[in-house]
Amino acid sequence: MFETSAPLSERRQVARDMFVLGFDAPAVAAAAKAGQFVNIGLKPGPLLRRPFSVYRADEGRVEIVLRAVGEGTSRLLSLREGDRVSVLGPLGTGFRFEPAWRSVALVSGGLGLAPMLLAARDARAAGLSVHWVHGARTAWDLGSEWDGEEATWATDDGSRGFHGSAVAAVEEEFGAVLACGPNPMLAAVAERWPDAQVAVETYMGCGTGVCLGCAVPLLAGGYDRACREGPVYRAADVDWPALPSHLSYSAVAMPA
């Protein structure tokens, strides 16, 4: 774990309203594994840091992918090149990869694409063949970056690829399934592939394991920490109905 004051050195758009930001943070970039996250502190900005999956990590740069949903993400997207943020990471326990699986499906929805480029990298390093299945609302929301390999697209409105969800678009059998997306989508993953590894989202206080704010309810009873033991879980181990789906907690747009 490192904490570093990191300048913004990259910004590009990858889908409608969706941007990649890159920060120079060599120690964090070198250590980051697929499924891990960074906790970003902004000054001025909200009191608490904001967690983001590591999207890419090379050449000393940590990249994240995001969309503006509130104060923290809006501020991040208004940063200019050279502006500094505090990057704390890499945090959490990421995906596991075992050569015996031979093949792996990466299943993502919306911003759940965030950990998948690193997952593809680490899966290939483990000798696995990689198939990415990614879904979004429309063709314009899909995200444009993918480093080769096989990919299947899915859209809710059928404007590109499979008409329906990413989960429904998976037809073949794979040695293992890795998934990331809104918690309700991950609940559907758990139904179909109990052994899938899924990366969940929770609210976080510290990101380092000390506050117990990021509780993930486990089917076996009790809670553990999305920021330490997680954010990646065996799908069938999570008590999905008890895990809040944060989208229902979004701010309400008031009439002007």
Binding site: L47, L212, A215
Partner: peptide
């Protein structure tokens, strides 16, 4: 962290929410 004599699971999530210049927590002494 606060402890009781016996183990405690704590409260269900969401357990924290950010507020202006502060935060609310209800960890429930897990």
């Amino acid at each position: 962290k606060g402890i009781f004599l016996r183990p405690r699971p704590g409260t269900p999530p969401p357990r924290i929410v950010e507020t202006p210049s502060g935060m609310l927590n209800a960890i429930g002494l897990q």
